[in-house]
Simulated scan of single mutants.
Amino acid sequence: MRVLLVEDDENLRFGVAAALRAAGLAVDEAADLPQADEALFVTSYDCAVLDRMLPSGDAAAYVEGLRRAGRQVPVLFLTARDTVADRVEGFSSGGDDYLVKPFAVPELVARVHSLCRRSAVVRPPVHHVGDLEVDTARRQVRRAGVLLTLTGREFAVLEVLATRADQAVARTELIERCWDEMAEPQSNVLEVVVSQLRRKLGEPPLIHTVRGVGYRLAPAGAP
């Protein structure tokens, strides 16, 4: 899942981005609304986290413009403005959630995960591929009923593959969905994570290499 974080306070942006990445999310950072606009133009995000008051303007008015243009990316506002009127204004402008500063980082991470699961296309929270169960709501993975321990990045890659079970998912798409703009597409970060996943998922193998394309999650023995 990929998140856009828009925050002009560099220290806060760094801390929040680090927490989201540690939770297995890919994070692109922007310091103002023009940078956010450029990022949203070229990239599809599962969620956007915006500081409400930025030097370049009120993010609520910006989001209202996004909604008028038909952009439906879920939005979480971060703000020091905590009156009822402020919160109502944030939701009225098209915001989906509202978190007042100072906030607990684990709560922010949980709210972002919740927003990322929202989609114009309703997806089942639990995906089954053979004897593999991927619970996207609880972020749990079981094989043959045994609970597996995955890192945030491993779960992110497996989640994308599970939502597209039996289909070949391009390497470039996996990197775009599971890593941020700091990742080098030509590096072997994806191959390392897939190797770790294969080891943890055990035998018989469920993740298959599609030569020249990427990877496919399919039941053992599938052609």
Rank of each mutant, 00 (worst) to 15 (best):
V100Q: 10
D96K: 03
R2C: 00
P125S: 13
G212N: 08
L147T: 13
T79Q: 05
Q186A: 14
P102R: 04
A85T: 10
L115E: 04
A104C: 01
E107G: 09
R13D: 00
G95I: 03
G15M: 14
A104Y: 10
R52M: 10
R142K: 15
A218T: 02
E38S: 14
V210Y: 09
R52N: 12
V75K: 08
E176K: 10
V126E: 12
R177Y: 00
G221Q: 00
D135N: 15
L54Y: 01
L201F: 12
A183W: 07
G212I: 12
P55C: 05
T43V: 11
A165M: 09
G90C: 10
Q167E: 14
A218W: 01
T209C: 02
P55K: 04
H128I: 01
A69S: 11
S93P: 11
V169F: 12
V134T: 05
V210R: 11
R139E: 12
P55F: 03
V63W: 05
R81Y: 13
T163R: 14
S119N: 11
V213D: 04
A165T: 12
G214H: 06
R81A: 13
L20S: 07
R117S: 05
A23T: 00
L78G: 12
L201E: 09
R81E: 15
R71F: 11
S92M: 13
M53E: 10
V146K: 07
V193N: 02
R164A: 11
D28S: 02
K200R: 15
G57Q: 00
G15A: 12
G212L: 08
R21D: 04
P55H: 05
D28F: 02
M53R: 11
A170G: 13
R164M: 10
A144D: 10
D97R: 08
E181K: 09
